[in-house]
Design a protein around this nucleic acid. Structure first.
Lengths: 152, 152
DNA sequence: ATATAATAGTTTCATTCGTAACTAATTGCA
DNA sequence: TGCAATTAGTTACGAATGAAACTATTATAT
């Protein structure tokens, strides 16, 4: 027999963190079908490619900052991308520890194929919303994000 | 030298899936400080407890459905919760495969401590938004979620 | 100049996670 | 009845993840 209980009450399907997490997972899965299934690129790797596709020559530490990933994850993603010949790495003249990363030709070609696909997906998502809802969403995400970032 | 590139362009910090994923991760981390750090309960385990706190006697399959977790993750969470004496399991008389799960006394006490904490956190989050923004967010999440759920 | 601290990135190890294969119980149907 | 198909849940295995320790290089302070 299934019984509803008294005492505390939490309805998962109305709980904001759960709803966000559900939505985000579904979107992640849909996106990774675009780059994992077709190009064998994982989530972390794609994020690294995404920032290096935009800004070439960054160090691993800066990539970590821009992707909000930790340095271990970035290191692994970089090494795997290099192994797959999607990334080039040199080291800075003035500091031999610091890497200077950029997409290889193959990396850029791949990036240029993936970007339109993920942008199409984003557009489809956003088109389920009216323009004013899109604006609201932008504002709301800014607010919530600055709240969760409040202490540093 | 850091260069901006032409060809495709994707700015991660404006890309909706990335923004959602960043926010969701931060919220997850904050919540798990509430239940992991204080009670040693992981994310999957908490989700299982959350539905069983609300609806007692469910089977693992129904828990999986209500938490949107897959059955393997649910099975692991359940067994770990039982080992920690937070959950009780019996099997249905009319089908010996089907489990009937409920929080133990200790499980319910823990649940009753965690629920107010996570609800406080949710309230703090929502209070960064005006009432109309909260309403918009609800509507927007519904729309986006029904989009990502569209094929099944 | 040299020792200490800090920084960039990697490695290690233990845990988590996801997919597929598996066991046990039940149902459907010939 | 009895055998194939389905269902509930678990196990096995490889990949991904996170924390801490580690290497190499550079900066700081005396």
């Amino acid at each position: 027999m299934v019984t509803k209980t008294k005492s505390s009450n939490l309805l998962l399907e109305e709980f904001l963190p759960y709803r966000l997490s559900y939505l985000t997972n579904k979107i992640s899965q849909a996106l990774s079908q675009l780059y994992t299934d077709k190009f064998g690129i994982g989530h972390a790797q794609w994020r690294v490619m995404a920032v290096l596709g935009r800004f070439s020559g960054l160090s691993a530490a800066v990539v970590a900052e821009k992707t909000a990933m930790d340095k271990v994850a970035v290191s692994r993603a970089i090494n795997s991308l290099i192994k797959n010949e999607l990334l080039l790495r040199t080291f800075a003249d003035d500091d031999k520890r610091r890497s200077e990363l950029s997409l290889s030709k193959k990396g850029r070609d791949t990036y240029d194929k993936i970007v339109p696909m993920v942008q199409d997906y984003e557009r489809d998502l956003l088109e389920t919303l009216s323009q004013s809802e899109q604006d609201n969403l932008d504002k709301i995400l800014r607010r919530l994000t600055s709240y969760v970032d409040k202490d540093q």
